[in-house]
Design a protein around this nucleic acid. Structure first.
Lengths: 253, 253
DNA sequence: CGGTACTTTGAGGCGGCTCAAGTCGAGTGG
DNA sequence: CCACTCGACTTGAGCCGCCTCAAAGTACCG
């Protein structure tokens, strides 16, 4: 705990956004030089979050705009009956909790999947920046509608694709996102457990596990717990592209 | 066609936003008086759209911000394999195609489900207003994140609930939305066909039909083609609230 | 009225859920 | 360092809901 507070202080002293390794992935790159200078003075960098620690809870009011600096974060909502619905996973460079921008209240919660760090802009400062910068507004609208597109994509995946396709798509997406962060696209560690994956994909734990095993049997991937080794990108892509057609579902259209 | 052009002209002459019957449902109510005065001068009112006519196609660039004035509209996206994915239905007072605000290009298309009318703000004018009005920015962010919340809701519905619950929720939602527009919440006409409903809910036509029939057999509703008569709001709500638990799915959480 | 598109209804099969045992792996205490 | 434990993951058997395929019924429009 003492450590933590120490680190929070140290954060201020760190690099400027322009020098951050994640700059090319961060929304800060879309700002003008002046805006970034301002940002550099107010940004609280490298805030540590422990594994399983909440960044915020559902219903809580938005305190700051948060970018994942390292580690990974799970976002979820609660259904009417209190079930957790995993709505997304966030990797370094991505902004968390944008959906609270409008109402000022987080519709769901966010938890660190591993020890992580974040950069935070206090809401007050952020709002002030928003008022002064049409460009920042544009950037935010962009981010929101990007996330919108992603959610729509997930809608398609979760509602209409068979289990094998969902899992394949999940692996591919993770691979792609991780590789943009300088990790090996063919060998990575999933930071979330099977429960979270299943929940995210709208499947059961058992089905996810079985599907992973099947893909391994077919030498498309290798799995050892959270470690994934993609043996055959192409065939994995095929699985993901089958989109529908096979199993059930299709008609419509 | 001649008629149509005539009407487009006449549109300009109509009422001001403040006098519109839909004012309380329209985003215009959130603007300041000055902003609204400006809006009144640039808004193209009551643009007619024929049944099955497209408001825009996927990939097309955003020409104007559009509010449904009367009738109803279906929004859809195309999946990789060209399947239609119905992403929403829009009723009078609702804004269409906001998800194109960021990129400037519509990710999907929109078609009128019946002869309808719209109010349109040419994009140029709208952008100009955005630059001059932090408030309008806020309103837009609000609308976008509202739509985000809705899509997330749909995600839950489509991915995790059984057919009966999905259909019940759909009916309830339509009922609620229509009643806010001064229509009888217990007796209404669905403007979309079974195919669209099924697609929207991630089900097949047959399943939707069977479910409606079942609800009718149980005297919860009465259906005659597109006409729906809710006989027992409470029991319909029960069906929708069962959320999961019954059939399959649940675990997670 | 005949055609076409939409809707309903039925029979059957399959994917994924449920329930129920394992197996594995990391952390703990003897 | 090993035995133990507890949670995470895997695997299997069986069942159920929804999809598929097929055909009949119904409404709308020329």
């Amino acid at each position: 705990m003492a450590d933590k507070h120490l680190l929070r202080e140290v954060g201020h002293l760190e690099t400027r956004c322009e020098d951050c390794a994640l700059f090319s992935l961060c929304f800060a790159q879309d700002l003008s030089k002046e805006e970034r200078d301002l940002l550099n003075t107010i940004l609280k960098r490298q805030q540590p979050v422990e594994r399983n620690e909440h960044l915020y809870h559902g219903g809580q009011s938005l305190k700051s705009v948060t970018v994942v600096r390292s580690g990974s974060v799970k976002a979820y909502q609660l259904s009417n009956d209190g079930d957790e619905i995993v709505s997304g996973f966030y990797l370094p460079g991505e902004i968390i909790g944008l959906d609270a921008l409008a109402s000022g209240k987080h519709p769901g919660g966010a938890v660190a999947l591993e020890d992580s760090r974040t950069c935070e802009i206090p809401l007050k400062d952020f709002i002030r920046m928003l008022h002064g910068s049409p460009r920042l507004n544009q950037v935010m609208l962009n981010l929101l509608s990007e996330e919108m597109a992603e959610t729509r994509e997930l809608l398609l995946v979760v509602g209409r694709l068979d289990a094998r396709t969902r899992v394949a798509l999940f692996l591919l997406t993770m691979s792609r996102r991780l590789s943009r962060r300088n990790q090996d696209p063919d060998q990575f560690r999933l930071t979330m457990d099977r429960r979270d994956i299943a929940n995210y994909l709208g499947l059961t734990i058992e089905t996810v596990s079985r599907t992973l095993s099947a893909l391994q049997r077919e030498k498309v991937i290798e799995v050892h717990g959270k470690l994934v080794n993609v043996l055959d990108q192409n065939r994995l892509r095929e699985q993901a592209a089958k989109t529908v057609d096979a199993g059930q579902q299709r008609r419509s259209a």
